[in-house]
Write a protein that binds this DNA or RNA. Structure first.
Lengths: 234, 234
DNA sequence: GCAAAAGTGTTTTGCTTACACCCATGA
DNA sequence: TCATGGGTGTAAGCAAAACACTTTTGC
């Protein structure tokens, strides 16, 4: 056979999302060496011998950001291997989507010093915001997250252990970039079996009536689904 | 740095689906050499230098099965790289889902002689039906196909250029493994804007009233969606 | 009392289901 | 004429959207 398989290095790139100040934010690393030195990029790194892809994702998340991937929602999105996508040669990238609650930023020690949360800039996205082809990777990861909010309880992964319905609504509003009716949202969420369960406790907002606190339920699929407004309008 | 990135070869594995005799079928290859000689596996092959993943998928589809990937629905599903998944060493596999109409089997020439359609065996699936980890890959690809029938016009990719509503219903029934009410299905499909458009022509079934023929519309998302019966029942 | 956020009730509208019923053909 | 699949009508039930209204806090 004349054609030999090419040898690739395989990188994991992480699109780590959270909600900060009511806005969707992504965890970025300022690159300290070429290629793309000084530019911002998704955190990531190479798969090592004997490592499964999920393991690499957890390890890189810890090394580069200080976050514990075992407690976060973490899922594979897709793989990119367009020739020339990495100036260092034949590097395939397996993209992962991670969802984190609004954590204190510390991420002490190690390489995490270069990590920071940045609001997702929908204008600059796909127009040279991030290094490599990370604009495309982030766009695909965002679309995955948006889609999964509809039929899975993924939104609770953006929240702390306990949360109010208003906080959950803020997640949907930030990720979908829409305004939702608080009254209908409340009824819809509490009507989906296994989505959220009341803890009995309450929390006082700065002003206003105290909100009941909830924790994640055990549903893995939402029924009925939380459909995006205007979803599919031609 | 003590840890070097491992070098991988990257394979594309194809889950090519069609409907044959009212049943969901997958295209399999009987392996002619070790490892897993004599066992059946998904068709596939290695990514070559300078090739994008989609290109490899199209090329392998043509070489191993005689099908033209440029005219088929073809989409990436996910990547598998669990250590030890391939006895030949560090081989990552990028799985693709392909959908074909019920084509005449010829697939003349080349390696396609070893290719054959097999009904999807849901019992043996995940219990050592296919070589490598292809049971898992096929299961994931099937789940992708099942999910996409709900919100995308993917079902038309199983049909020829023109088709009847009954044929389209047979696709949903075969992929979802359910019975659907023909009357309600007809109304639902024709009510989704851009899903199917009437050609004006008709076709006579062996017995019964002639059926109107349709072709694919230009919708990329179905609204309202074709929800799976019982979808999400706890 | 006022502002603000939480939460309930009600109406309208649209989709889904179940099923009765009619249509057009081959044998 | 009968069997068979194609296709329409209709009513019940669930879910979504819009919005009036009440509750409970901090100031």
């Amino acid at each position: 056979m004349p054609h030999q398989p090419t040898a690739f290095r395989i990188a994991i790139d992480l699109a780590v999302l959270t909600i900060r100040d009511g806005h969707l934010a992504v965890l970025l690393i300022e690159r300290g060496q070429p290629p793309f030195e000084g530019r911002v990029a998704l955190p990531g790194g190479f798969v090592r011998a004997g490592e499964d892809l999920d393991d690499t994702a957890v390890r890189e998340l810890s090394e580069e950001t200080g976050l514990d991937g075992r407690t976060l929602h973490l899922e594979q999105v897709r793989t990119y291997a367009t020739p020339g996508r990495d100036p260092r040669g034949a590097v395939a990238s397996v993209a992962y989507l991670a969802i984190a609650p609004d954590l204190p930023m510390p991420m002490a020690g190690t390489d995490a010093a270069r990590a920071r949360w940045e609001p997702v800039d929908h204008d600059r996205l796909s127009h040279g915001w991030l290094a490599f082809d990370h604009d495309i990777i982030l766009r695909d990861a965002l679309e995955r997250a948006r889609a999964k909010l509809e039929y899975s309880p993924l939104a609770t992964a953006f929240c702390a252990e306990t949360f109010t319905i208003g906080e959950l609504r803020a997640v949907y509003e930030a990720v979908w970039q829409v305004r939702l009716d608080p009254r209908n949202f409340h009824r819809k969420v509490t009507g989906v079996s296994g989505f959220v369960v009341p803890t009995g406790a309450q929390r006082n907002p700065p002003t206003g009536r105290p909100a009941a606190l909830y924790r994640r339920g055990n549903a893995t699929l939402l029924h009925p689904a939380m459909l995006r407004p205007d979803n599919g309008r031609q």
